[in-house]
Design a protein around this nucleic acid. Structure first.
Lengths: 145, 145
DNA sequence: AATGATTAGTTGCAATTAGAAACTGTTTTG
DNA sequence: CAAAACAGTTTCTAATTGCAACTAATCATT
């Protein structure tokens, strides 16, 4: 296998996904939420407020599945579901206080994970690495248009 | 939010995971294999041969679930399952020719995805980015001891 | 303004997928 | 040689999922 930058990028993704899978599973088991629910909470938290379709799209789930996941989250008081008064076909999904706490706790775990990695980069290289990572991030963002 | 290198790394992982989820779903639908089966094929292909427990561990699945996934893959002739003659409690899971083809096709998709990203990095920066990515990859690998 | 098409979300249904626990067969240990 | 440990399978049951049919709201066209 050619050891190119792209293969390193792939391996980085592979390893992080695997690590985060474990991390998420521990979160899931300690908070009595399923993995889908956990992902949903993160996405809602990031967007502050979103519709069901938005959520289904980012999570790659069928809208019926999404509807039920949200339903469970409402029942467990992690999210609020309100009808959009401007267009009453839509629902506005947002986190409750309880949901925000869960979100913050997940965020803290995630940030800690990535911060730990970053801190292992020799200090004199951190600036350069940051610039390069930003470059890659922007390429990825531009892909999604 | 502080725009540090760690947050870029996190965002890169986020975006790639999302893209690859879509990529995998298309693969899954065209090859009549489930997502778990798809992941299993990739891991078996990477390791060439592994036990059920090994596989369950990398994929974060229960061994009973893993057993069934492997079973389906054997039925669909993607993998061979042989009893290890040195210790007959173990099974040796490996790809059939058909499985290798599927694996190669998944690999090609993945490599293409990452290669496309990498090619968008200005040529004069590619060497530097590669070095930095390798650094991060090694940090991640050392985490898993 | 009426009605037909579109859109957002929910629900019924069937199939898949999951884990826990009990079980089988093998190897290791004392 | 018995018992503990281990790898994998099977049984049972619960959760998760997607598709299709449905409801309700809005938009578009006349």
């Amino acid at each position: 296998m050619i050891k190119s930058g792209s293969s390193f990028l792939r391996e980085i993704t592979r390893l992080t996904v695997q690590d985060l899978g474990l991390l998420e599973k521990s979160k899931v088991s300690c908070c009595n939420v399923s993995l889908s629910q956990c992902h949903a909470v993160v996405e809602i938290g990031r967007a502050a407020e979103m519709s069901l379709n938005d959520l289904a799209q980012v999570l790659n789930l069928d809208k019926s599945t999404m509807s039920r996941v949200v339903n469970t989250l409402v029942e467990n008081e992690y999210v609020d579901r309100l009808i959009d008064q401007a267009d009453r076909r839509y629902i506005r999904i947002s986190l409750t206080e309880k949901g925000k706490h869960l979100y913050q706790s997940i965020e803290n775990n995630m940030n800690q994970y990535f911060e730990d990695i970053f801190q292992k980069i020799p200090e004199h290289k951190q600036k350069e690495v940051t610039e390069n990572l930003e470059l890659i991030m922007n390429i990825l963002r531009n892909k999604q248009d």
